[in-house]
Simulated scan of single mutants.
Amino acid sequence: MPFKFKLGFCTDLHGSEYTFRRTLNIAKSKKIDYLIISGGLTAKDIVFVEEIGGMYLVNGKKVNLKNLTEDSLRSGKYLIVNKKEVIDDIKADKSKLEKTLAEIIADQFSRWIKIADEIYRLDRVLWSPAHGDIPQLDDILRGLGAKLVNDSVSFIEDVQLVSLGYGSPIQNSYREVSDSDIYIKGKSLLKDAEKDKVIMNFHMPPLNTKLDVIKVGFKKFHAGSKAVLDLINEYQPFVSLHGHVHESTGVEKIGNTTAINPGSIFQLGEPSIVLFDVYKEVKTIGTLSIGSYVIKNIEFVTTATMYM
């Protein structure tokens, strides 16, 4: 088994293909051994584009479809382009909207899987759909040959990756559960884990830390999960990885756990990825050798900025 590997982690791409491509290019240039792409993977916004005789309208205003399509790839939006009567029908029928959305997402991830393999290495990408991602995404990704790790215990070499994508209720989106359910689900996954070998990949950040601060006007609030904080304190994985709160890029030590949120600037089409080396340290006591994992060389990377 290797005694060192380099891991990359990004989260909350929200449908931005620019962010996705740039993240993969960073992974390639930095020679990352494994890349975890955590949820929300899918776009948050839908734009309805009405087609009339070769013209395109959004909310009654003429638009350039080519420019709008380019902007959607950058900022993460799904375009539904059709005649007015078809759009009105889709808007009026939730099942039709969900079917249309699933088709758009299936097409997007079919493209993304090919991009991942062309730029980086598909077999080294670990996908973790989470809060806000449609339930069908899991089967879409599996059908395309992607490695899913969400809501499970998986392995990176001999390190245990424990992943949970559920989020606290905020806006009646997909994969929302109560904080007590997050604790129950998380504890079920972590109960047999060896803490010295565990990377905890929980989409919700721990409550009341530097990783969960949001700004509303001039005020700041903590939007994390007490359940996640309690699980970190209880199981003390050597590293925990989080997302959800885009503006709280940072690192915080919680007991022996190094907790990290790389943040997200997907709206700009820019990547926000954290890289670090995972080392296996072996201590010999008499004839007994004991191995434990630590992380070193934490690096946050965007297109133009690197900082420690």
Results as ranks from 00 to 15, higher is better:
187 K>Y: 14
138 D>G: 00
136 Q>D: 13
158 D>G: 04
175 R>D: 00
155 F>P: 00
153 V>Y: 09
196 D>W: 04
188 S>N: 15
127 W>D: 01
125 V>Y: 03
127 W>S: 01
204 M>C: 09
208 N>W: 12
195 K>N: 15
201 N>T: 03
196 D>N: 14
156 I>W: 05
172 N>H: 13
204 M>V: 04
194 E>R: 14
125 V>N: 00
194 E>D: 14
170 I>H: 12
137 L>C: 09
201 N>M: 02
160 Q>E: 15
169 P>L: 06
138 D>T: 09
137 L>Q: 10
208 N>T: 10
174 Y>K: 02
202 F>G: 09
181 D>F: 03
182 I>S: 07
181 D>Q: 15
197 K>P: 03
141 L>F: 04
202 F>W: 09
208 N>C: 13
158 D>Q: 01
144 L>E: 08
151 D>L: 00
175 R>M: 11
128 S>W: 01
131 H>S: 04
186 G>S: 02
201 N>K: 08
152 S>P: 05
169 P>H: 07
143 G>I: 05
165 G>C: 10
192 D>I: 06
131 H>E: 02
159 V>G: 01
150 N>C: 06
177 V>P: 11
190 L>M: 13
177 V>D: 11
152 S>F: 09
192 D>P: 08
184 I>N: 14
159 V>L: 00
136 Q>Y: 12
145 G>L: 09
165 G>R: 03
179 D>V: 09
188 S>V: 07
168 S>C: 05
139 D>Y: 06
122 L>M: 08
149 V>N: 03
186 G>Y: 04
161 L>T: 01
148 L>Y: 10
130 A>L: 01
201 N>R: 04
148 L>H: 11
129 P>A: 05
